[in-house]
Simulated scan of single mutants.
Amino acid sequence: MGITQELQERLKTLNPTRLEIRDDSEKHRGHGGWREGGETHFHITLRAPALAGLSRIARHRLIHDTLGADLVGRIHALSMDLDG
């Protein structure tokens, strides 16, 4: 299973009303952290009730905790657009 699929599977546990995962790796070709085959730079758009009322920092922490250190450690860059 690729990183994109792993992101999707783990984030589904938050019961999102909207989930979009975009692999932006090709935009970073030749930059630090890029590797052949992509799946190094991602952007996540997520809307989920679990995020409602949380601060921006708390939302990011929840996403990182949900993804787990093992998965986050394989990603060079992760940008997020999060809302409850």
Rank of each mutant, 00 (worst) to 15 (best):
M1R: 13
M1S: 14
G2L: 13
G2M: 11
G2D: 15
G2E: 12
I3G: 14
I3L: 15
T4Q: 14
T4W: 08
Q5I: 05
Q5C: 04
Q5M: 04
Q5Y: 08
E6K: 15
E6F: 10
E6W: 04
L7K: 03
L7R: 01
Q8G: 08
Q8R: 13
Q8N: 14
E9F: 12
E9S: 13
R10F: 04
R10M: 05
R10C: 08
L11N: 12
K12A: 13
T13Y: 12
T13N: 14
L14I: 03
T17S: 14
L19A: 05
L19G: 02
L19T: 02
E20D: 08
I21D: 09
R22Q: 15
R22Y: 07
R22N: 09
D23K: 00
S25K: 04
S25P: 04
E26A: 08
E26L: 10
K27V: 07
K27W: 01
H28P: 05
R29D: 01
G30N: 03
G30Y: 01
H31S: 13
H31Y: 07
G32S: 12
G32N: 15
G32A: 09
W34R: 00
W34V: 02
W34D: 05
R35E: 11
R35S: 15
E36K: 10
E36L: 11
E36V: 05
E36Q: 13
G37E: 13
G38N: 01
G38D: 02
G38T: 01
E39I: 13
E39V: 05
E39G: 12
T40Y: 14
F42I: 06
H43C: 04
I44S: 02
T45G: 12
T45Y: 04
L46T: 00
R47Q: 15
R47K: 14
A48V: 00
P49L: 10
P49Y: 08
P49Q: 15
P49W: 02
A50F: 07
A50S: 09
A50Y: 07
A52N: 12
A52H: 03
A52Q: 15
L54W: 01
L54F: 11
L54Q: 04
L54T: 00
L54D: 00
L54M: 04
S55F: 03
S55V: 09
R56D: 07
R56C: 03
R56F: 07
I57M: 10
A58C: 03
R59F: 00
R59L: 00
H60P: 00
H60Q: 01
H60M: 06
I63A: 05
I63Q: 02
H64G: 06
H64Q: 11
D65L: 11
T66A: 04
T66D: 07
G68I: 00
A69P: 11
A69I: 01
D70K: 13
D70S: 15
D70P: 03
D70M: 07
V72L: 11
G73V: 05
R74F: 10
I75F: 06
H76C: 08
H76N: 08
A77C: 12
L78G: 10
S79P: 05
S79G: 14
S79V: 07
D81S: 11
G84N: 03
G84Q: 06
G84S: 14
